[in-house]
Structures are given as C-alpha cells and as structure tokens.
Design a protein around this nucleic acid. Sequence first.
DNA 1: ATAGTTACTTTCCTTAGGAAAGCAAGAATA
DNA 2: TATTCTTGCTTTCCTAAGGAAAGTAACTAT
Lengths: 129, 129
Amino acid sequence: MSLEHSTDHDHVHLGNVFSATCPCRDLLDVVASKWSALAIGALLGGRMRFGELQRHLDGISPKVLTSTLRKLEDYGIVDREVFAEVPLRVEYTLTPLGHEAGVPLEALRVWAESQLEHAQRTEAARALV
Amino acid sequence: MSLEHSTDHDHVHLGNVFSATCPCRDLLDVVASKWSALAIGALLGGRMRFGELQRHLDGISPKVLTSTLRKLEDYGIVDREVFAEVPLRVEYTLTPLGHEAGVPLEALRVWAESQLEHAQRTEAARALV
DNA sequence: ATAGTTACTTTCCTTAGGAAAGCAAGAATA
DNA sequence: TATTCTTGCTTTCCTAAGGAAAGTAACTAT
C-alpha cells in the first residue's frame, strides 16, 4: 500500500511510453505487434527451430519471420543459437526478459481467442457496409 | 483443476490466434500495435477528446490517430461520440471489450517502462556496431 | 473581414509487410 | 559424378501502412 519502501520485487518506473523520445517506447513498439506476440507465445512452450516457428506461426513468410526474430534478438527478448550441423540447425529461445514480456502477451492472446464471437459479429457488420 | 464444469467466469477458447484464418487473429493484429496499446492505455483513464488523445500520445499524427481510432471502433473496442457544438467536440471511450483488452495491454506498458535500463543498454550495444 | 478553434483529410514520401523465387552448404542417393 | 534433399535463410517485387506537412470545413468571436 505504501510507496515509501520498495523491495527487489518492485519494478521501478523509469520511463513513460507516452513520451515519444523515451527508449521504452521502442521496446513497446517491438513487442506490441502481431508477429512478435505470436513468436514469443510460441517460444513460451520451449526452444524452437526456425522451421518449427514458421510452421507454428501460420501464414508468416520466412523474410518476416527473420526480421521479427532479429528485432527481438536486438532487444534481448530472444536468443539465437546456431548449431554447425548438416543440415544447419538454428534454435531460438526466450531470454528471462522475453519470459517477462510473455506474461502480458499470453494474456492478450487468450483474450483475443476468447472474443471470437465478437470478432465474427463485427466481421459480419463490416460485410453489410 | 477440472475442465468438466465451466462457469460464467470461464472464457471459452473458441479460436486459435496461431491459425491465419481465425478471426481472432485480426483482433490480435488490431490490438497488438504501439498506437492501439497507447490509445487504449490513455482511455483507461476515462473519456477523451481527439485533441486530448493527440497531445497524450506524443508523436502521433492526426492521420494515424484517426485510422487507429477507426479500427478500434470497427472492432468494438472504443466508442465514438460526436457532440454538435461549436467548435465540434468528439469524445472517445472504451467499450467493456476495450476495458478487457486494456488489462493485458496495461501490464505490457508497465513492463516496457520498467525495462528502461535494458532498452538503453541494447541501444548502446547497437550504437557500437 | 479576419482570426481562432476543433477534428479531421489530403498529399507526398518512406518504411514495413507479404508472396514468390533463389541460394548456400553439405549429405544422401542414383 | 551428378542430382536430389534438407534447412535457414536472402533477394526481388509489389502493396499497404506509417509519418510529416499542409489544407479544409464549420462556426464563433473580434
């Protein structure tokens, strides 16, 4: 209840996403996207290879998957491991930061899935226009 | 623990965001974006006029704000009210659905803001390349 | 007649998203 | 030896979305 004593569990608010120049705005931008949310969601289940991710994220092109994973890697959300085998094996995992981001993203995913009926209704509404 | 008896509190999983053709994929796409997250976050504080939102969402152009709000309106996440005054007044509010979406989005925002240090580190790392 | 207010729209340009095809590096097969 | 197969990409091309700047409509106040 008190703001006076903070513990290790408290996340200190250093930034403001509403400010255009705050670095945390970029972080939000990277994470708040359809493909990032799905990639992180998939990786919550454990490490995955490029091809596995591509099959899991139905409809993604290899180009977009690459750029999505690279951006997440740049921001320390996923980790990329290359195994010099033949055929080549590349595995992606979530970093601790990625796991943290995964919690609200998972909740968003669950929410979206639970709203199917509503989505169908609005789709029908738009079809009438 | 059991999946046998569901109550009114249970959200039924009707969809799968990982499937490209599932309507809930579109819903996720609309909501999982920088500007949508910020607009919904701002509106969690109560109704707002167009100009207020524009000032609150630092860096957004009126064109992008309009298209963001229109999309959210189409999906039943925000409500738009026009008051025939002079000068014109238009107010935006969250629908119940919007409030639901706001919960995980707020958590994502808080997470992004708490990770400022990390964002600065990665920014510094990229600057070295 | 001019300026001010609000909520946009329009134009133009750049960036991101998406489909399709190509590529590199070996291993296995014919 | 040549072809095929696998994986993890990259490249090219095109369209859609994002962003900056200026313009517009409608009415009030000066």
